[in-house]
Write a protein that binds this DNA or RNA. Structure first.
Length: 198
DNA sequence: CATGGGATTGACT
DNA sequence: GTCAATCCCATGC
């Protein structure tokens, strides 16, 4: 992570979520570029931290640069980047990656062949990268999971902004960010959902 | 202490 | 389009 990237994690969560588009996630031999994120903040009821400091949510209130990994629907592990200063419950959900390396290992773990089936969803990408609940609250700077800056030569990705997916509360917040036109996003945009491009 | 509900996915009609 | 899997946690009695 560059100094600029590190400072971005202290920004308000929606800003951090947009900055993380294009950054890389690495675990072992597998890695990918982030193409879809969502912001979650303690002030709104879709965020786990809305419930306050509990046995489940405590990592959200730690200093940034650690992972928050939790079990979804009793089945999947979902990966978040904890952001904003310690004491503030906020995190960015990593919803999709563009596979970069270790693709054969991803195929083996996922039981799928097509590259767009490997990391095109928050539960898929943790399976493809071998990220489980045991990595909750671990450092994203020192590993085992590593967060890295965008690949050189790609330029600033165009980012589309819309409403978050799969939630029932605070649905109106425009806190979903996608690399424009990338085929690895978890779901295409329903007509009329896009509210802006950054 | 019982219960309900997901920041999802894949299989199936 | 529908639906089950599966389990931890938050909530409420």
């Amino acid at each position: 992570m560059s100094d600029r990237q590190l400072r971005a994690l202290a920004l308000p969560v929606a800003e951090a979520a947009r900055m993380l588009i294009g950054c890389t996630i690495t675990h072992g031999e597998t890695s990918g570029a982030i193409v879809e994120t969502e912001a979650y903040h303690e002030s709104e009821p879709a965020c786990h931290a809305f419930a306050g400091l509990t046995a489940r949510t405590w990592p959200l209130f730690e200093a940034p640069e650690i992972a928050y990994v939790y079990r979804s629907y009793g089945v999947h592990a979902l990966l978040n980047v904890v952001v904003e200063p310690a004491g503030v419950g906020a995190a960015v959900l990593i919803r999709a990656l563009e596979p970069l390396s270790g693709i054969e290992q991803m195929r083996a773990r996922r039981g799928r062949e097509r590259p767009t089936d490997l990391c095109s969803g928050p539960g898929k990408l943790t399976q493809a990268l071998g990220i489980g609940l045991d990595l909750n609250a671990t450092s994203l700077l020192h590993g085992p999971i590593r967060l890295g800056p965008p690949l050189p030569g790609r330029g600033e990705p165009r980012v589309t902004i819309g409403e978050r997916i799969g939630i029932t509360r605070a649905v109106e917040l425009p806190w979903r960010f996608c690399a424009a036109g990338n085929r690895n996003v978890s779901r295409p945009w329903p007509p009329g959902l896009v509210v802006g491009v950054a």
